[in-house]
Amino acid sequence: MKNSSRRGFMGKAFGAVAGVGAVASLYAMKRTWDPLPSVKAAGFTTLDMSAYKENELVTEKWRGKPIFVLKQTADMIEKAKNNPKDMDRLIKVGNDYFMVCLGLCTHLGCIPGYDADEKSFLCACHGGMYDFTGDVTKAPPPRGLDIPPFKIDGNKLVLGEEGPEYKKMLETGVTLKA
């Protein structure tokens, strides 16, 4: 009886220590699977917005995904002003307006192509279309192109950081969290 209770105590003591060890190891394993700090640090892309030309689509890369940058012409801004939904999608840096979107079709993730004459995007996979602000004009895409988190920093745009303008877009439902 005395023996068995000693064994029982040994068992419980071992179990308690091993339990703490098991939880600690699980935490270590979880942390080992985390993205590395260097990967996290590379998660920000800074764009110099003074370098873009009007109505010329440039594809940048952020977190391995294509980012469409399209500087708007006066013409386009005029058109967008008639449609407040379009105007909300544009980002104002200095005196210029830009469309900055994730270049992945919101339908099934293909990469749409830009037609500078028509000033619209066409996704070759299933025929979805977007206007020059990235808003959807023809199904099947369920919504306009997503806008990546951005922060305006003088003449620069930092992708990956959430500035007040981006947060406002999230609140008003202009874009989903990309």
Binding site: K30, P35, V39, R63, K65
Partner: peptide
């Protein structure tokens, strides 16, 4: 649910990359 954190944790990166291929 938009559990993007979980997806990035599984990949070890924002998109499939070196960490993803290795694991």
């Amino acid at each position: 649910l938009h559990a993007d954190g979980l997806v990035e944790w599984i990949r070890g990166d924002y998109v499939p990359g070196q960490a993803f291929l290795n694991r």
